[in-house]
Design a protein around this nucleic acid. Structure first.
Length: 321
DNA sequence: GGTAGACCTGGACGC
DNA sequence: GCGTCCAGGTCTACC
């Protein structure tokens, strides 16, 4: 047997001093969607990162000096390392400073003790948009399945057998029949291909969407012109862009309004009441709303960093928990 | 501007 | 095992 040892890249990133991997990863449902996998027993996040040449599986943990460690399954060149750091930073919100979180806690002190403030997202805006589309008009288990199949059917496989999330380039040239028949995305097939094409052509400009000089209204107005993106999806993508001034109202929000906030009336009346209720949180509305919902889930199912993926994949909404 | 109905999948349920 | 019903957000046609 040859004794050659395969070289692998290990990167370290020093996060903001208030960053907590378990808390800040297990803060939004996407952490249980493939290609993400939260290992409950080891408190580590695994996922495959896409690179131009080939993908690489990565295990992320927070070591004793609080630094984040990224262990890749192969050696990355300098360009890939730089790209990996950018993707990881977006996913974990490492650019969100302690000061920004403190500003949120000043407006809503309920989350100061736990330190909650960052919401987990994807390494790319494209993955966030597709994940949002797969969460529309379906129950959570279907969203889980669609993302698993998108990775297994359209993603690239690493040497260790893990799958990446398909790139925009890949989905732009995937046949709608494949998406419908094998990924089971239903009528979202054409919309996903169209979205992918818009990203490939550069019509969705993340720099513009995150530019502070561009208003939230302008960004929202643009987002709802995209195929498959309506008011709910638009609001959700806003928060995934780091813009928290809007709510993303779906049936879950209405349910929260009724059960936790004691609202009653038609859905339209409750929607109006919800907007009024969260208005005092201003620029932080979505965060305040979301952590209320998340707290409700945790009161039923225990701390999110202890949620087993298979269990959460089957029961995730308040109706099921 | 408001609303009804179609679009799909998968789970629950009854037989 | 099969058929039926239901949940879920977006889009289009129509009033």
């Amino acid at each position: 047997m040859s004794g050659s040892v395969k070289k692998r890249t290990v990167l370290h990133i020093t996060p903001p001093r208030d960053f907590d991997l378990a808390r800040d990863v297990c803060s939004y449902g996407y952490f249980v969607l493939m290609p993400n996998y939260w290992d409950v027993s080891r408190q580590k996040l695994s996922r495959v990162f896409e690179f131009v040449d080939k993908p690489s599986a990565c295990v992320i943990d927070q070591v004793s000096d609080r630094r984040l460690r990224f262990q890749f399954d192969r050696k990355l060149d300098i360009t890939e390392q730089k790209f990996a750091k950018t993707q990881a930073s977006r996913m974990l919100n490492l650019d969100v400073t302690h000061g920004e979180i403190k500003a949120f806690h000043k407006v809503d002190p309920r989350w100061k003790k736990s330190g909650k403030g960052r919401l987990f997202r994807s390494p790319t805006l494209f993955e966030d948009v597709i994940k949002t589309v797969t969460s529309c008009n379906v129950t959570w288990p279907s969203t889980v399945n669609m993302n698993r199949r998108l990775c297994e059917v359209c993603g690239r496989k690493t040497e260790s057998g893990a799958f990446s999330f398909p790139s925009a380039k890949k989905l732009a040239r995937t046949r709608v029949g494949t998406l419908r028949g094998r990924c089971r995305v239903g009528y979202r097939d054409q919309r996903i291909v169209d979205l992918a094409k818009l990203f490939v052509k550069g019509h969705v400009d993340e720099a513009w969407l995150t530019d502070p000089s561009v208003s939230d209204d302008e960004v929202f107005k643009f987002l709802i012109t995209l195929p498959g993106i309506g008011p709910y999806a638009g609001g959700n993508i806003m928060q995934l862009l780091g813009r928290f001034s809007r709510l993303a109202i779906d049936t879950e929000t209405i349910r929260h309004g009724k059960s936790a906030l004691g609202m009653s009336g038609t859905d339209a009346q409750i929607t109006k009441a919800l907007h009024a209720h969260y208005e005092p949180f201003g620029e932080h509305k979505f965060r305040s709303y979301w952590f209320e919902i998340w707290q409700h889930y945790e009161s039923k199912a225990g701390p999110s960093h202890l949620w087993e993926r298979d269990l959460v994949s089957k029961a995730f909404t308040a109706a099921n928990l």
